[in-house]
Nucleic acid binder design. Sequence first.
DNA 1: CGGAATCCATTGCGATACTG
DNA 2: CAGTATCGCAATGGATTCCG
Lengths: 106, 106
Amino acid sequence: MQPAEKSKGCPLTPLVALLTGPWTLHIIWTLSTQGPTRFGVLKRQVEGISSKVLTERLRMLEEAKVIYRDYKPTIPPQVTYRLTERGEDLHIVMTQLNTIAHKWYN
Amino acid sequence: MQPAEKSKGCPLTPLVALLTGPWTLHIIWTLSTQGPTRFGVLKRQVEGISSKVLTERLRMLEEAKVIYRDYKPTIPPQVTYRLTERGEDLHIVMTQLNTIAHKWYN
DNA sequence: CGGAATCCATTGCGATACTG
DNA sequence: CAGTATCGCAATGGATTCCG
């Protein structure tokens, strides 16, 4: 069971389920600070992540309308990810987390 | 490997590692809306969590100075958890997440 | 290049039982 | 009441390989 499967009533649940997924915040943070980024670059920036999980997470974020996937069928193909307006909402939250992190650990 | 083990340099890392732990946000949310709560009540409010994991998470949150543990050695023993000032910092963030959740899903 | 598919080891979680 | 201890399994993330 996913923890988030419970408490269907709370509107926070699906959002929390998304954000607490592995690497998710890291990916969003990278996209928000680096701007639109290609798959390969993203994989290098989010150090330690596997292709499988990165793809998986990007799909979930795309489905949640947090990121856009821009696919150019060139050879070789070129796929760029960038935050949507929803992604920017989350960026604001992460900026606050960043502020808190500094407050706590400095 | 825990995802958070990487990127030691980023100040966000330990905070994110804490928050993305299972049930963590749920626990914080409950404590912030219900106020100080005893173990048994908390276990019932955070529906689906096991004693083991609840204890585990509470210990981590205590260590991170996010919650206090008030222990009264009565018979039967009485242990109450409540947010610290740090916990209140996180409550603010969650309130914003709540706002976002409503914005997205309504 | 950006994945999809497969396989596999790890482990984290739940269930259960027990205790001061 | 508020945990701790033990166990066993399923899920999940990593590594690898292959492809359009």
